[in-house]
């Protein structure tokens, strides 16, 4: 079973991202579950969401404490939240940032990947310039880092889920897939 934890801020689309990822994996024949940690829902407040992917039916209904992957949709969360909590030693972390890997202080035992999802979302006019909706770009990057779902399947799932700007969201995912930088 692969377990993924999303860290975002209210309004960035973390919960929707966890659902789209589950849907894409389901389309590829996997068993899936996705769920938010439901705190006090406010725009800008830290939000956590989770996705499980497995080859067998998923029966476990408790939360995820030792994820294989952590996705950080807002780089300010690196200071506000212990995003690495429980991340498996062979796990990977994907961060939406423009910073260089060596400046980020992420332990070298973790695979680290970065993508400028904010820039990509703004380029495709997703959300506003001040509060861009970065989830489709982050998912494209995650497909690249994890190889868990094909980018084409993911794009199909994004198009199915996006209430508007379907094409822009699809392009954001593809751009991010191409632009993600991975530290092995």
């Amino acid at each position: 079973m692969i377990e993924i934890r999303f860290h975002g801020r209210g309004g960035q689309g973390a919960v929707v991202a966890s659902n789209i990822l589950a849907d894409a994996a389901f389309q590829e024949g996997k068993s899936v579950a996705s769920f938010p940690f439901f705190g006090v829902e406010r725009r800008g407040a830290p939000v956590t969401a989770y996705t499980r992917i497995d080859d067998r039916p998923i029966r476990i209904k408790s939360s995820i404490y030792k994820p294989n992957y952590v996705i950080v949709m807002d780089q300010t969360l690196l200071k506000a939240v212990d995003v690495l909590a429980g991340l498996k030693d062979d796990g990977a972390i994907l961060v939406n940032t423009q910073r260089k890997h060596e400046e980020m202080g992420i332990d070298s035992r973790f695979k680290l990947a970065t993508v400028n999802a904010t820039g990509i979302a703004i380029k495709h006019k997703l959300g506003s310039r001040e509060a861009p909706i970065v989830n489709s770009a982050v998912l494209g990057a995650f497909a690249k880092v994890s190889g868990l779902v094909k980018i084409d399947t993911l794009v199909t799932a994004i198009i199915a889920a996006a209430p508007s700007k379907k094409e822009e969201n699809a392009l954001a995912a593809k751009d991010a897939y191409a632009e993600t930088v991975v530290r092995q």
Partner: peptide, 10 residues
Amino acid sequence: AFVLSHTAEP
């Protein structure tokens, strides 16, 4: 609550 209500599964 949430364990089913807000959890997506097939």
